[in-house]
Design a protein around this nucleic acid. Sequence first.
DNA 1: TAACTAGTGATACTGAGTCCCATATTTGAC
DNA 2: GTCAAATATGGGACTCAGTATCACTAGTTA
Lengths: 196, 196
Amino acid sequence: MSLRDNKKTRTRETLRTAALRLFREKGFERTTVDEIAAEAGVSRTTFFRYYPTKESVVFDRGRELGEVFRRWIAERPRKENPFEAFEGALLALARESQSSGLAQESLELEELFERNPALRKSRAEHRQEQIALVAQALADRDGGPVEAEHRLAADIGLVVSELVREQWHASGAQIDVEALLRDLFATVRALTGAGR
Amino acid sequence: MSLRDNKKTRTRETLRTAALRLFREKGFERTTVDEIAAEAGVSRTTFFRYYPTKESVVFDRGRELGEVFRRWIAERPRKENPFEAFEGALLALARESQSSGLAQESLELEELFERNPALRKSRAEHRQEQIALVAQALADRDGGPVEAEHRLAADIGLVVSELVREQWHASGAQIDVEALLRDLFATVRALTGAGR
DNA sequence: TAACTAGTGATACTGAGTCCCATATTTGAC
DNA sequence: GTCAAATATGGGACTCAGTATCACTAGTTA
């Protein structure tokens, strides 16, 4: 890694930590891009060279998460249908995220979302992208184009994971994530399976 | 209705039609609020008195739709679970929207969304509000607080309805909406029901 | 060291959204 | 009808996000 690239990743991280600190302290909307840049010892122009929008700082890691999903999904056995595959991938991810720092990190972000409606709106947009990504991953695994079942499986799985995140956060990170996940998937099956 | 209120609803509609025409002609992002106001023969300030944001013009009718959902859901028999209740409500709504002008109207909006990514983003935000609304309606019907099953049912039902809208629009409004709905709900049941 | 490449900062611009104040218009009471 | 209170409108100034341009500086390569 060249000196130039080193500097770039350092600047990127400096901007990110500065932004998140200010968002936490003063709130997302009451923080201006100028302040973030000043805090990071860099010009406003430079901020926008690293991040296309003010919100994008918060979702920086989210894109990586999409990649993680894709890999876990690709590994699921062929006999599973898209819904089961995504369920399996989420369970695997849940186990993983306990050991890595991922769980802690998402806990801190959750606080930000709770306090800043504007960020929740951005998350909604982001969610649509993630659905598309997961649906694509599920379709790739089946070796065909994205069908309704892939979209449905991606959507349902992501809502479940959102509910898990919320409930886990609400409990102060006390609940067992894996059990929570299983429980919610069981709820989905009970809701959609029994009737008719 | 007083003369004042008459004028207000007229101004509101004038603004809406002016905005939608400009969005269609020049695209959402290339249309400024100043242009919309000028087109409607009103000042910029007045525009913002009627609509809080530029996008909100497009989603004006969406809020009404939420109310419609709520009413149809409240009417579902008590023995149905939240998922079945929402399915029933959507089927009823589908029948209704054929006869009323609703179907045609949503077809026109769909074109707007297809051509304007910025509007699709706003729709994603809007969707979260709708989920909350439907979940609340489903919970009210059960006479308790919003539980995970209400959120899940609302979410799944809304994705299904979105898929219906897309596919119906893609077919040039040729497909039978009711059949499409039944088909997609069947897909959900097949996905989540059979396994394990 | 020289020449090239790529990141940075300053400045100016557009457009959304907010605020405030002066001026019309409508309403209700007389 | 007239007048005063209530309310809608318009104008103008302001903040801030996001874009574009250009001159400048630091890193890379030979």
